[in-house]
């Protein structure tokens, strides 16, 4: 069972309270009618699917109900950080330094 820290509730709680919501920091095209089919594909379907630290969204479904972001290592499933959706994307090198 993963233990996940909700940055809004400021509590670390079992995975069962949360739902996974896919990769984070994917911005919808600002002007949808001007983008090409390939750009739509990239936005809708292409994911980094990284083997290692992964920027992703979670939702505290059975708690505050809010979405937040996280960086989790997809090899060890260990969370490096969770942060609020309007917080800036944390730099990976600093996170890795901190987790050592």
């Amino acid at each position: 069972m993963l233990l996940i820290h909700c940055p809004y509730c400021n509590q670390t709680l079992p995975e069962a309270e949360f739902t996974y919501a896919g990769e984070a920091h994917i911005a919808r095209p600002a002007d949808p009618s001007s983008v090409s089919d390939e750009e739509w594909r990239d936005f809708l379907f292409i994911r980094t699917n990284v083997k290692g630290p992964h920027y992703e969204r979670w939702r505290h479904f059975h708690g505050c109900g809010r979405y937040f972001n996280a960086v989790r290592d997809t090899v060890s499933d260990r969370f490096l950080i969770t942060y609020k959706t309007d917080d800036p994307r944390p730099e990976l090198s600093k996170l890795l330094e901190k987790s050592k």
Binding site: M1, L2, E15, A16, T19, Y20, N49, K51, H54, E56, R72, T74, V75, S76, D77
Partner: peptide
């Protein structure tokens, strides 16, 4: 499992 992962384990829930 609900989250992406390369660990060939998965979670107990």
């Amino acid at each position: 499992d609900q989250y992406t992962s390369y660990s060939q384990r998965g979670g107990l829930p």
